[in-house]
Write a protein that binds this DNA or RNA. Structure first.
Lengths: 331, 331
DNA sequence: CTGTTAGCGCCTTCAG
DNA sequence: CTGAAGGCGCTAACAG
């Protein structure tokens, strides 16, 4: 078992290899500047001593630490883990370490986290940020920031365009004969929510459908259940929910109320995070969160390494995934 | 909009406040050593310049950087996000930043990640580590490590004891008249898998039930589907799956095969990550991942701040949650 | 190709 | 209570 003694420093390696620390430093950063012979000697000594360059010291001197931060509103929301995973994998390919932050849907907490990560991070990825445009711009003025699902001019961003999928959903319902539908909303600060709500309204108008909107701040299974009564009260025959969780809650409540789906009522989710796990399996709008996570990191790393601070707006389209919670209007 | 100019240093604050950098440093670390008057002056100057102590420089000089790493096999596995979230919240309370690592179920990747986080982390939390005991011990000799769902003597660990819940599951099935059951396994390197398998065998033997074990390296929906044929081939009337995902896949496949649940076959999951989302809703073993995450972090922080390197083995019991996928044996 | 010399920004004895 | 001085481990000109 290796002992716990302090890590060897660059100086010890230098001494052991019979060179100065400059050479050791170079051997680890720009070996092509040294003779093969010297590099070999240095690596041998380093290996022998178990030397690993001190990340912190290097960062202090270069100002680069190879860390990035990824902040999401809620790690436990099934929409985010696949995105986080994809982002991590991408960071990994370029040897970046990623700090994960959970803002708890709170702008204050988000701001605080950014401050805490502050000095030890080269760039930030803010996913579904709940902060104000002004705050975001402010932070982006200090270090590179890439946004996911948040559209702020001048800041590189990756947007999952659920509008296309939502539009398909409305058409789908129209074809099934539905005349009146309701959009069950999500968090106020959410860009995606706004986008989906607008898409529903626009398509409904174009197709001559009637649509009402019910807001529902906390998107989740339980709130989906609770909101169901109001949904039924509108007299609509179909609903499009902000996300799959909300839709799933509605499904459960509908079942408890004895309302058959899709016989008497149709439900469409959004983000396809549940797969075919609900019963009946949920008709929903596809999700591109994996690509979004990967793209966001690729963008950020590109900016960090090539100083390419261009104004990108990367849009990922979605589409409707028809399963079994939508059917012809009853009667 | 604040410009992007470099952050002010301790020296600039000192000059602005008319003191030396020693005093500024003290004002931020041990203000009780200074006169109130001086502290006030320094804070005013710092505020005015927008000074924030440089984390990296401080870390280099003190050796403490207030970061910890949390490594999990797969962020996207629904078992982990709640744990991650709880761990984060706990880290937050003590102002620690957390690096998240995704080992992809690979010991090599896990080892590599630890190396990458290496110098900039004060402690590690390894969740369901896939590394060998020796590797774990080796890493633990360098810096504090807390394990979750991995039982290595001498290393602080938090264990979710699914054995209690699994035992209840077996009893439950026995009471329902089942005579022959099968355990559908999970990843080979998984401590939890071993634990669950043993618990099934032990309880089955005690109750005089027959049990066969089917291994299934990749626990997930799809593999649950695929394994179903072999499960039915054993002639058992009930199955206990390594986790909910596997169970859910089995449920889907069983439905497709026209095998009714729980009429003709009973299924029990493990970890309760799906809630009531499956249909029929899944009978499963409760999960304590939130407490596990919180406890692991509390432990680690305690070790870091109080040098309390005791040998803790924290066990969280589980129990059976009966829902609707278990019923009397057919016939 | 390699050594010398300054720092990076902060903390921490040691004096006073 | 406060200042002066050295150092944490490494990188980066600048000379040879």
């Amino acid at each position: 078992m290796t002992s716990k003694r302090a890590r060897p420093t660059i100086n010890q390696v230098a001494e052991a290899a019979g060179v100065t620390k400059s050479s050791v430093s170079r051997a680890f950063t720009r070996p092509e500047m040294l003779s093969e012979e010297t590099v070999r000697k240095i690596f041998a000594a380093a290996e022998q001593l178990g030397y690993v360059p001190n990340h912190t010291a290097r960062a202090l001197s270069t100002g680069r630490h190879g860390n990035i931060a990824l902040i999401v509103p809620d790690v436990a929301n099934p929409f985010f883990p696949p995105l986080i995973r994809a982002a991590q994998a991408e960071a990994d390919r370029s040897d970046y370490c990623v700090f994960l932050g959970n803002s708890d849907e709170s702008p204050q907490q988000e701001d605080k986290l950014i401050g805490r990560f502050g000095g030890q991070v080269e760039g930030l990825v803010l996913v579904s940020s709940r902060m104000s445009d002004a705050q975001i711009v402010e932070h982006a003025s200090r270090r590179p920031v890439v946004l996911v699902n948040r559209d702020v001019e001048g800041i590189p961003r990756v947007l999952i365009d659920s509008a296309t999928g939502v539009a398909e959903a409305v058409e789908h319902l129209a074809e099934l004969g539905h005349k009146k539908l309701v959009y069950v909303g999500g968090p106020h600060g959410s860009w995606s929510n706004k986008q989906r709500r607008n898409a529903v309204r626009r398509s409904a108008r174009a197709l001559g459908l009637d649509v009402s909107v019910i807001s529902n701040e906390f998107a989740a299974f339980e709130s989906g259940r609770k909101i169901t009564a109001s949904v039924l009260a509108t007299g609509a025959s179909a609903a499009i929910a902000f996300d799959d969780l909300t839709a799933q809650g509605m499904l459960a409540e509908l079942a408890d109320q004895g309302v058959s789906v899709p016989g008497q009522f149709s439900v469409v989710g959004c983000d396809d995070v549940l797969g075919a796990a609900t019963y009946p399996s949920l008709t929903t709008v596809s999700n591109r969160s994996v690509e979004a996570g990967k793209t966001a990191l690729t963008l950020l790393i590109d900016i960090l390494e090539n100083h390419a601070i261009r104004d990108v707006r990367y849009v990922l389209n979605t589409n409707l995934v028809v399963r079994n919670t939508t059917g012809p209007r009853a009667g």
